[in-house]
Write a protein that binds this DNA or RNA. Structure first.
Length: 503
RNA sequence: GGCGCUAUCGUCUAGGGGACUAGGACGGGGCCCUCUCAAGGCCCAAACACGGGUUCGAAUCCCGUUAGCGCUACCA
């Protein structure tokens, strides 16, 4: 996929918006993670869906770092989120917004509500609140703030204010019902009586989550909020805030959670949950993105293996699922194998080269020198690999001066020492006499040898395979010989003979 | 506890009243191909949570039950 700069500013194009039922004008969407850890697969999927909405409709995909929780936010996490998105190929538009820098606006919006009477000051201390809560819970009733501070007389309120008592700002939830047409769930509705007068500004005047989100989404002119469905219960509060601020709420789309194999919310206990973990495990970004997309979305029909570009043509909110999906690492691996075998060697090369160098198998300069040969080798190895690690593991024999022999393989294919010795020696002799180092001539020579020895061809190929690669698994034997090259292959055979020969 | 969301093979899903003896994919089992392993091909086992409606007809619409999950902070 062609990658634009992260910070490229893309002008919304109002062209093909009519085709998609999601929005009637190009949407402005955002991904808003808090930088308190690495990019989680759930977050990555939310980002992906938002990105897809923007890219399919000529909209804008924005990134907002919700760093208002100073205690837990770190720069490392922010960097990891950028890196994760970049790796997946999800580029964003405009400048990154840092929520903490919007503080003044958050306060301004909250004060506006205070002024308009949509919110009020609450002087209850955390301790008092705990007391009230305790008293309520005893009677089996669920706690809801009883609005006592809203009933304070004018004099009392002024007195407390003058005395400099600390206060929080609470939103006064009006009577009625708050509902919206969710893009994935259709109509969702909450009776306002179940929503308590929630705090929007702490006693230090910093905003609470819902306040900051609404204020930012207004400032960023977000038209569609697409996020995990664990936010459903925040939504009525946010809608109320929009209304109190005199702003039309955006559309909402709540996508289902991702669960672990045990059906519980995906967590550390389920193993790898950060996209970087999968990157390290040799998963291709295209496979990751493909797999994630299918967790909660379907293009309809049987289509499964897709690139980001394909999805850009197929994505529609109509294909979004309501139900939580279980993350199945087995299917991810399969998916990776599919992508691996389809991707061009030239695209794979930048991913594999550093791994090869790091594993100390070969130097980068050698690969540059033999690029054409190297690309052919990648094509050879990618077919039977499920991860890039598999490829690296398989690549060693084509470079290393010496190899080690897998004990299981030698035990199985080199059972009889004398026979093996004879066989390897004859094979080496025949191959060395070949005028041309080509698969068809090798095959002729080796099959003839098998005939003369009166054994099946496999009885020749398999010991040979172990001698050449040290393993019992490899590409076709003639492909191995060809890729290895005459000199290395013959040397390898010599080494194997030495290795087997009794003292 | 309250509120909300959800409910098709073990898993991801197709399905949007008759085309359903419910399709595909992963995983599992078997066979074929074959120099090994993948890939590929073929086959098998495997699901509409339950109970009521609506309808000539329900996996599809409605209600209830059950179960799972989420939220329930001066966290985000």
């Amino acid at each position: 996929m062609s990658q634009k700069s992260w910070f490229a500013i893309v002008t919304p194009e109002p062209s093909n918006s009519k085709k998609m039922p999601l929005e009637n004008s190009p949407p402005r969407v955002r991904f808003a993670p808090s930088p308190t850890g690495f990019l989680h697969v759930g977050g990555a999927r939310t980002a992906l869906f938002n990105w897809l909405v923007a890219r399919t409709q000529g909209g804008v995909f924005l990134l907002r770092i919700e760093d208002t929780d100073k205690a837990r936010s770190t720069d490392e996490s922010t960097a990891a989120i950028f890196a994760g998105l970049e790796w997946l190929g999800l580029d964003w538009d405009e400048e990154v917004v840092y929520q903490a820098s919007g503080l003044a606006q958050h306060q301004k919006d909250a004060d506006r509500m205070l002024a308009s009477g949509a919110a009020y000051r609450c002087f209850c201390t955390p301790e008092e609140l705990t007391e009230q809560r305790k008293a309520m819970t005893v009677g089996k009733e669920s706690f809801k703030y009883d609005r006592r501070c809203d009933r304070l007389s004018e004099e009392e309120r002024s007195a407390r204010l003058a005395a400099g008592l600390p206060f929080v700002t609470r939103f006064r939830v009006p009577e009625g019902t708050t509902e919206w047409d969710d893009l994935v769930h259709e109509r969702i509705s909450f009776p306002n009586k179940d929503i308590e007068d929630f705090v929007i500004l702490r006693s230090d005047a910093t905003p609470i989550y819902n306040m900051a989100v609404v204020s930012d989404d207004i400032a960023m002119k977000i038209t569609l909020v697409m996020r995990g469905d664990d936010h459903i219960s925040n939504t009525p509060k946010q809608i109320l805030l929009y209304r109190a601020l005199g702003v039309e709420p955006p559309k909402f789309a709540h996508v289902p959670m991702i669960h672990g194999t045990d059906g519980k919310k995906l967590s550390k206990r389920h193993g790898a949950t950060a996209v970087a973990d999968y990157q390290n495990e040799g998963i291709l970004p295209s496979a990751m993105v493909n797999f994630l997309a299918l967790l909660g979305w379907s293009p309809g029909g049987d289509r499964e293996v897709m690139t980001l570009a394909d999805m850009t043509k197929l994505f529609s909110a109509a294909g979004l699922q309501k139900k939580a999906a279980v993350f199945d690492p087995k299917k991810l691996e399969w998916m990776n194998g599919q992508h691996l075998s389809r991707i061009a060697a030239s695209e794979l090369e930048p991913l594999v080269t550093p791994m090869l160098v790091q594993a100390d198998i070969v130097s980068e300069s050698e690969l540059v020198e033999r690029r054409e040969w190297y690309l052919a080798l990648i094509d050879l190895l990618k077919i039977r690999a499920r991860t890039t690690h598999d490829m690296v593991r398989q690549a060693r024999p084509y470079f290393a001066a010496r190899i080690t022999y897998d004990p299981d393989s030698t035990a199985k294919s080199w059972k009889d020492v004398d026979q093996t010795l004879t066989l390897l020696q004859s094979a080496r002799e025949r191959l060395s006499k070949l005028h041309e180092w080509r698969p068809d001539s090798m095959e002729g020579a080796l099959r003839a040898l098998a005939d003369e020895l009166g054994v099946a061809a496999g009885k020749v190929f398999q010991p040979l395979r172990v001698a050449l690669t040290g393993m019992s698994v490899s590409p076709g034997i003639f492909e191995v010989l060809e890729a290895m090259g005459r000199d290395l292959a013959l040397a390898r055979l010599g080494q194997a003979i030495e290795h087997i020969r009794p003292e």
